[in-house]
């Protein structure tokens, strides 16, 4: 019989406390606890409430990584409390652990936040199937395993908000839909039964849509269901080009500009890319460009370096291109 030794460690928890009804400012309460290697973060939240302070508040329900209610931040990292083992957290952060709500500025009471912005954005991407289906069908509406694979597990999302509140763009740009809403959009865009023709256009709009993603991969790192939201964002970019809804704007030209540059030089022509993307708006970059020029950071077009064996690259572009803009 294999023996799994349960070990115990002393951990100091610094816990965010706030009651919007009474408190002017939030504060942190400290709790020193012995933590066993078997415990998950939710066990700690339970013990704070049961053993230390009955008024401590947090959302929880299923305890099985399905309901998505208990996501909080552990030392700044979005975490689904019922799924994350304390051993991993101690490995990551040591024995001083800070527990905070997903977004401190949206706190209502302790770990509970007002998630309205998350749900509003989620709702605005039409997160349901739009299909003209007979109310009394004579046969089943089957989806083949091959077509189901196209969802790329986007349907596993539990709307816990871990990625949404880890996204630095959501934090700065309140119009930005955020990774979870994009996953929801992708889940239905990739469904063969879906017939909606507005959703993809909607998530490709400037300021709010996929083109404002900073490509930081925070969402991929935190997702407790390993959905890889940025992969779905990339796929939404690709769909926009494939389905012909990509608008001709600075963001799309920025992506396509790479192809033009690689075709011509093998390498990226940095100045050329900015010119291609911005058009006449390039004037706004002139002050910085001048500073860079003075420091030898700008190559003149006639000195633009080229990759060796450029003909190979051009041949591959000709034979392997799958999209036209």
């Amino acid at each position: 019989m294999s023996t799994n030794t349960i070990t115990t460690q002393k951990v100091n928890f610094k816990v965010f406390r706030f009651n919007a009804d009474n408190d002017y400012l939030p504060y942190y309460e400290n709790y020193a606890m012995d933590v066993t290697s078997e415990e998950v973060v939710l066990d700690i939240l339970n013990r704070i409430k049961w053993d230390h302070d009955g008024s401590f508040s947090y959302r929880r329900s299923c305890r099985h990584g399905i309901c998505g209610a208990c996501a909080i931040k552990v030392n700044g990292r979005s975490t689904l409390a019922c799924k994350e083992s304390m051993t991993t957290m101690i490995e990551y952060f040591g024995n001083e652990i800070t527990l905070e709500p997903l977004s401190t500025k949206r706190a209502i009471k302790d770990m509970i936040i007002d998630k309205a912005d998350f749900w509003d954005k989620h709702a605005s991407v039409t997160p349901y199937l739009v299909a003209d289906i007979d109310e009394c069908p004579s046969c089943e509406n089957l989806v083949s395993p091959h077509d189901a694979e196209e969802l790329n597990e986007a349907d596993l999302c539990i709307q816990c908000g871990a990625c949404h509140y880890a996204c630095p763009v959501v934090e700065i740009n309140s119009d930005f839909f955020g990774p979870a809403a994009f996953v929801a959009a992708y889940r239905f865009e990739s469904d063969i039964r879906d017939g909606d023709n507005q959703r993809l256009i909607h998530v490709n709009e400037e300021k709010q849509g996929v083109w404002d993603c900073a490509k930081c991969f925070e969402c991929a790192e935190v997702c407790p269901k390993d959905i890889n939201p940025i992969d779905k964002i990339t796929k939404l970019h690709q769909m926009a080009f494939k389905k012909g809804v990509a608008k001709n704007n600075v963001a799309t030209r920025h992506a396509v500009g790479f192809l033009h540059s690689i075709k011509k030089h093998g390498m990226l022509d940095e100045g050329g890319l900015v010119l291609y993307s911005e058009g006449v708006s390039i004037v706004k970059h002139i002050p910085v460009a001048l500073q860079m020029f003075k420091k030898g950071k700008i190559i003149m077009p006639w000195n633009m370096p080229k990759s060796d064996k450029l003909d190979e690259i051009q041949k591959l572009i000709k034979s392997s291109s799958t999209v036209k803009f």
Binding site: T234, Q238, F258, L259, I262, G266, L316, S320, T322, V323
Partner: peptide
């Protein structure tokens, strides 16, 4: 690797993943 091309800088794949 003087023959190398640009990696696409995480933007080319938004347009054409296979390429």
């Amino acid at each position: 690797l003087t023959e190398a091309s640009c990696c696409g800088a995480s933007h080319l794949q938004d347009y054409d993943d296979f390429l």
